[in-house]
Design a protein around this nucleic acid. Structure first.
Length: 432
DNA sequence: TCTGGGGTCCTAGGACCC
DNA sequence: TCTGGGGTCCTAGGACCC
């Protein structure tokens, strides 16, 4: 290999973050729940071993978790985001280049070394991150991103110990030649990065069950059945890189703000308030990133499960001139909501999507539509206040006033903001 | 009673233009 | 008896990811 790709994956990341600041959790089974305490989105090893699946509805497993003495935490994204930043910083000290792939995963490039040397580098990474941040990581290495992902799956095969210490051997380096072929024969296609349930089903119908079989398929067949995405995947499995390391984050193309409601929502005023809140938060995010939007979409849905009828609809509209101005977005959001609102359904979720994002300068066209300087000053002042005094200090009446509503989120078991709020700093006590 | 939230890429098809 | 051929832009929908 010219350069080796490494995939670093934080083990049970959200659970590991909770355990860093609450040591008593290190010896207990732990789960972290999604917003509204709805689903299980992170599980310690003991919980995985007990067969509780990712994304499982909490209410269905609550008893079982209780019986096994599991600790339950609501998600604390401020904490996880900050811990992620710290872990990435450690990895950057060792990597040639680094791509932040998700909150708990990074692709690294490493020098092309012998297999045993790569094992040593991976273990050095594990020790560094464990000692300095208390988070255990798993490392998979290969000549392409896809093979690094495969290697990461293989690394999972080594039994871990259920603590935050890095379990020995949760590292795998993709072998060459015959050994690679043998390894790929043991990998089901459904486990591959880029193959989801729908494509796995299609491949199964064609008798393609393993990664080795997939990479043997003719290019034309791959292209026809799985589009260029599948062709790239197979090419990467053959050891030829198609996917580059993206160490310069691309400018985002869309931005979503949405939430499920914790209670029942049927009337338009409540929906309007929720949509307004999301539009306001989306606008803040837009300004914080120096972007403007050219298209706004509003969507509402009834519950996904249970008895029909379900109702889901969305309406969108072009924003000319492009904008990141809260009152303008609020006005459009209300108008769009009026189009799709229907009486009587019990709504479960609402949100807004901003699209056609671009940097706010250079400003485009619309000579006579430049924003009023007073408006710009107003938005700056609002953002400044909310940054220094806390989110929601100043808002717009159309987005509702501050406070709990029957539709706001349920987060009953959230841990403190250990690393991002002075008042929540953990306190160390000396014995004796 | 109770089932998350936020993204990307690809393709097909329609509108429109020359 | 017999429909033009490309190109671009936009949107909707499907697939995938964490």
């Amino acid at each position: 290999m010219d350069t080796a790709f490494a995939l670093v994956d934080c083990e049970n990341f959200y659970v590991s973050c909770e355990r860093v600041f609450e040591p008593s959790l290190r010896t207990r089974p732990v789960v972290v729940l999604s917003n509204n305490d709805g689903c299980v989105i992170a599980r310690s090893q003991a919980v995985k071993d007990a067969g509780i699946p990712m994304g499982a509805p909490y209410f269905q497993w609550e008893e079982r978790l209780d019986a096994m003495g599991a600790a339950v935490r609501s998600s604390n994204y401020a904490l996880y985001g900050d811990m992620s930043r710290r872990v990435m910083h450690e990895l950057e000290q060792v990597a040639l280049r680094l791509e932040r792939y998700s909150i708990d995963e990074a692709f690294l490039t490493l020098p092309a070394l012998e297999r045993d040397e790569l094992y040593a580098v991976a273990q050095q990474l594990q020790r560094r991150v464990a000692r300095r941040q208390g988070v255990p990581i798993r490392v998979g290495i290969g000549p392409t991103k896809t093979l690094a992902k495969v290697a990461d799956e293989k690394a999972k095969g080594n039994r871990p110990v259920d603590t935050t210490l890095p379990p020995p051997g949760r590292v795998y380096v993709c072998p060459d030649g015959e050994a690679r072929t043998a390894m790929l024969r043991t990998v089901p296609v459904a486990e591959l990065w880029g193959i989801g349930a729908a494509w796995a089903e299609t491949l199964h119908e064609h008798g393609v069950e393993t990664a080795e079989q997939l990479r043997q398929q003719p290019d034309s067949w791959l292209r026809r059945v799985l589009t260029v995405v599948g062709l790239r995947l197979a090419t990467e499995l053959r050891g030829l890189p198609c996917l580059e390391l993206e160490d310069v984050p691309a400018t985002r193309k869309s931005l979503i703000r949405s939430r499920s409601f914790s209670g029942r929502v049927t009337d338009e005023p409540t929906l309007r308030e929720a949509v307004g809140k999301h539009a306001q938060r989306a606008a803040e995010k837009l300004r914080a990133e120096g972007l403007v939007a050219g298209y706004l979409e509003v969507f509402i849905t009834t519950k996904r499960f249970g008895e029909p009828p379900h109702y889901a609809n969305a309406a969108g509209g072009t924003l000319r001139p492009v904008t990141h101005h809260t009152p303008i977005l609020l006005r459009h959001a209300r108008r769009l909501l009026r189009i799709i609102y229907r009486d009587s359904p019990t709504y479960k979720k609402a949100g807004v999507i901003l699209q056609q994002l671009r940097p706010e300068t250079p400003r485009q066209g619309h000579l006579f539509d430049d924003p009023d300087p007073d408006d710009v000053a107003l938005m700056d002042a609002v953002d400044q206040l909310n940054r220094t005094m806390g989110r929601g200090t100043v808002g717009f009446a159309a987005a509702g006033v501050r406070g709990e509503r029957d539709w706001t989120m349920k987060r009953e078991q959230r841990s403190p903001h250990y690393t991002t709020q002075w008042s929540d700093l953990p306190v160390a006590k000396a014995e004796g």
